[in-house]
Design a protein around this nucleic acid. Structure first.
Ligand SMILES: [Mn+2]
Ligand SMILES: [Mn+2]
Ligand SMILES: [Zn+2]
Ligand SMILES: [Zn+2]
Lengths: 141, 141
DNA sequence: GTTGCAAATGCAACAATATTGCATTTACGT
DNA sequence: ACGTAAATGCAATATTGTTGCATTTGCAAC
């Protein structure tokens, strides 16, 4: 299935209107092998949309389960497409994120298995975020 | 040992000069049961120091291993005293952080045991950040 | 206790990130 | 083709964090 067609159904399935800005963001995120920062997305947008539109679009995408957001070791927000079938109610893509201190890249590690954690009494968990900081495979000599 | 005296040795041991702003920050962090945000520290400082001084002071403290920094579920930086004997070279206090979605509190959970994680080939880890999001013990009905 | 100097601070300016209100435009079901 | 809710653009504002530089201060050596 061609990309544009996939994006069209994706947007429709999540109750979002098809607009040039949204298609462009989906394209950018699809072609990226990493989670990417707002500034990088804006850069690649090449003025397809206003900054505010981009922010609001990312919020919608996250709310509707098209993308997820993670903060890297420096606190920078990074966005990536959801792999699983996430929707407005639940994100199903809890996975490890790897942050490289050399290239500042953020990778979604879907293959790593998250071990169970037992919390102290009184706390109730709704989601987990596991991040690992180090050197990524691209940056190794 | 009285607080001020403890702070004095703490600063000296880490090669930092004793100043009113630094003593105040140590006091604020000592008295807090949670990791707290820059804005909260600034608020409690009551104009003991300039904003820039506070930022620079926090950077020094972190570099020298007096405090550690974590990002909550909203990406807000939160600071807390190091429990272990951390220094300029290594932080020894890798523990789970709990972020409450109701009060926005961030708790250092020193008792929770971090399970081992095996990474895919090519990645090498230097540190881990495990955060749990949910409802804290104070916010439960 | 005086001195010297690196460290720490204050102030101004700047940069990045993010949000809000409101008028205008657009997508899309009918 | 039309009507309307959703999406966008623009201006203004807020928060967070950084940088350069002049001044002050802590503290070790004398
Ligand atoms: Mn991810
Ligand atoms: Mn902590
Ligand atoms: Zn890398
Ligand atoms: Zn709470």
């Amino acid at each position: 299935m061609p990309l544009t067609e996939r994006f069209t159904t994706l947007l429709k399935n999540h109750g979002l209107k098809k607009t040039p800005a949204r298609l462009r963001v989906l394209e950018i995120l699809t072609k990226s092998s990493q989670a990417i920062a707002y500034s990088e997305i804006e850069h690649q947008m090449k003025a397809v949309a206003d900054r505010v539109t981009l922010y609001r679009l990312l919020i919608s995408f996250e709310e509707q389960g098209l993308i997820h957001k993670t903060f890297d070791h420096q606190g920078t927000a990074k966005y990536a497409l959801c792999q699983a079938n996430c929707d407005i109610h639940t994100h199903h893509d809890e996975h490890v994120h790897f942050n490289c201190t050399q290239c500042n890249g953020t990778f979604c590690l879907d293959t790593v298995i998250l071990p169970a954690i037992s919390l102290p009494k009184g706390y109730s968990a709704s989601s987990y975020q596991f991040a690992i900081t180090g050197i990524c495979k691209n940056c190794r000599g």
